[in-house]
């Protein structure tokens, strides 16, 4: 396989959601064919430019997946499978990205706020951000405001993503923004919020920089922020 074929096949398999060759895809009968992990291994062995893989195979195909999800053609498990592919590819490519001159788009601290154990959506966002080239520090779920603020401070992160799935825990987000303000860190970091009970008006109310409907929306907003 030449470079072009490998990159096309990676893109195809991200859309199909196949990490390894035994995986089933969205379509029937793909089992046994090389998938993202095997193809990325070829990229590394053949010293193909890792940047081309990220730009031409990963980012574009996740946009396709996002479109399919928006249209209702793809369901949550399909999107998760594709996101797993991007995560696996980025893990394998990780050490080679710096050599290829791929610069991080910035540090991104991600957390589900205190009292809230929901992390499915937050995890998808994390994988998508990784695929989009951010340096993601996922703090997990039920993370205290103190820890979130301390991590933003220590890492100097430019972005903070907060998730809450309960009307009782979404208020934590406002408290975190207030603390960032009090500590004089508010201008250092863009705060993005998401989760079922949140909304644009809630983001406005608590002074967040953006409300993200879903992972794909988050990527769009970050593009605009980077301007």
């Amino acid at each position: 396989m030449n470079e072009q074929e490998i990159i096309e096949k990676i893109a195809f398999n991200v859309i199909q959601g196949r990490v390894t060759e035994e995986d089933e895809g969205y379509d029937e009968g793909l089992e046994g064919q090389p998938a993202v992990a095997e193809l990325v291994q070829m990229v590394i062995e053949q010293r193909i430019d890792a940047k081309k893989v990220v730009v031409n195979a990963l980012t574009g195909s996740m946009e396709t997946v996002g479109d399919k999800f928006d249209k209702g053609e793809y369901l949550i498990p399909d999107m998760l499978a594709s996101a797993e592919c991007v995560g696996a590819a980025m893990d394998l490519l990780g050490p080679h990205l710096a050599d290829a001159g791929v610069q991080s788009k910035g540090k991104f601290v991600l957390a589900t706020v205190a009292g809230d154990l929901h992390d499915i959506g937050k995890n998808i966002v994390g994988i998508m951000l990784k695929g989009a080239g951010f340096d993601v520090l996922d703090l997990g779920n039920d993370v205290s405001s103190e820890r979130i603020v301390a991590q933003v401070k220590d890492t100097g992160a430019r972005y903070l993503g907060l998730s809450a799935l309960l009307t009782t825990t979404m208020r934590e987000m406002g408290a975190i923004i207030k603390t960032l303000d009090e500590e004089g860190m508010r201008s250092q970091v863009q705060v993005l919020i998401g989760g079922a009970p949140t909304s644009q008006s809630f983001a406005d109310e608590i002074g967040a920089d953006a409300y993200c409907r879903d992972a794909f929306h988050a990527i769009d907003i970050l593009k605009q922020m980077a301007g």
């Binding site: 959601g17 995986d23 089933e24 895809g25 969205y26 379509d27 029937e28 369901l75 498990p77 399909d78 998760l80 499978a81």
Partner: peptide, 9 residues
């Protein structure tokens, strides 16, 4: 049925 492939298909 990982990722509900067969089910959804």
């Amino acid at each position: 049925d990982r990722h509900f492939r067969k089910y959804s298909r």
